[in-house]
Design a binder for these strands. Structure first.
Lengths: 213, 213
DNA sequence: TAGATTGTTAATCGATTAACAATC
DNA sequence: TAGATTGTTAATCGATTAACAATC
């Protein structure tokens, strides 16, 4: 499983492959050719083969790909065979929504702690986890082997909190705050900028209405 | 403002430009060169000029770009000068989180209705809007000039509901369900696949730990 | 006018697609 | 063996970057 300089374009497509293969597996499909998968997913067979070959040969000439094997391998590439420990910082609506989303846990993303500045939320339980004050993050991270911090706080405090998290040794931030975090090399940030996504939709809606493609 | 065949790569960058320009405007900055903006945003000045020139000449040689003017123009390109009427389908945690997010409204995205299958939620009010049963969507869309439907329901029902929405005349779907919707040409879908995003983070975390870039 | 900086063309780079030899 | 389909190289396409003439 050589993984050298894989482009983010390829990485971005892996979860979608994983999803389709999971569905095929559940349907009891044993094998699939790049051609058939390409028709299902509406991408080129060439791209599928190129993508998979970044990670070594998963297929077999004349046969295609074994669905279950490929599903497992992509899961491993995505790190879904490992447990990840998350804390959610900002336990408002969005933080709670994420905490309640069971499917993350199914994939090994375990939510260990919830934090907020709002004293009214303290000790509120979400799926058995009590909301704690922000001051407790430092010790909690140390004691609970936390991989990933989820930032669901307003943009005004996000940059500062992110800096602190880096100090505490957090290596990955899933950032829902609408601001670019400035973290040192070696710390990962994955942004989910919801309003950017909505604006894109608005743009396309707009230019479509003007009769353009 | 000619907008012919602008690539999605460019569109995806517009909201970020808009955000930075808004901040500059709030700080009272009057003008900025592509060079200065490039240092701020960590992209090339070339890309900035190319991007803006897709929509016509917003700058002035020897001067740069007027921040407020550019901000306004990009806003218009993104359709933020128009009002958009949204309904949220699925009033669970995520739907409520989105309904409560004030900033969308500030940009002209007005949430008009909330829907759910769960009878326990009926008449629950979120920011003054009562949750209604799914059966009421059809008439509501007709009577309230709805542009965009936000899908925050489980994947199992998302495909079916999307089909109905298309029948009711919805032209844009902001899809949070973890499934690809199959809609006819002319209907827009913007996907927010949260678990895909989390998996990407997991991949990068994983390959970083293995000592790779 | 001289300096600055855009708008735009040309060069480069990377990603996607096509083609086909290798091989199951 | 013949047919199917991958793995992989080569060709194409598109996006990014560099360069510079136009012009404020």
């Amino acid at each position: 499983m050589e993984e050298k300089g894989i482009s983010q374009a390829v990485i971005s497509r892996l979860p979608r492959y994983f999803r389709y293969l999971g569905e095929l597996k559940d349907e009891g499909v044993e094998r699939i050719s790049s051609q058939d998968l390409s028709e299902l997913m509406k991408v080129t067979a060439s791209q599928i083969r190129q993508d998979f070959n970044n990670f070594g040969g998963f297929g077999q000439q004349g046969y295609g790909y074994n669905v279950e094997y490929l599903y497992e391998e992509i899961g491993k590439i995505l790190g879904l065979d490992k447990e990840h420990h998350l804390i959610i910082i900002g336990s408002g609506n969005l933080g709670q929504a994420l905490a309640n989303y069971m499917n993350f846990e199914r994939r090994g993303f375990i939510i260990k702690g919830l934090f907020d500045t709002n004293t009214n939320l303290y000790n509120k339980e979400i799926r058995g986890i009590k909301v704690q004050p922000m001051e407790d993050i430092k010790d909690f991270v140390k004691e609970n082997d936390i991989d990933i911090a989820v930032l669901t706080i307003p943009k005004s405090s996000a940059v500062g909190v992110a800096e602190q998290l880096v100090e505490y040794g957090i290596k990955a931030i899933w950032n829902f705050a609408h601001v670019d975090l400035n973290v040192p090399k070696g710390v990962l940030v994955e942004n989910v900028h919801l309003s950017d996504s909505l604006m894109k939709l608005s743009y396309n809606l707009n230019c479509y209405e003007l009769g353009e493609e």
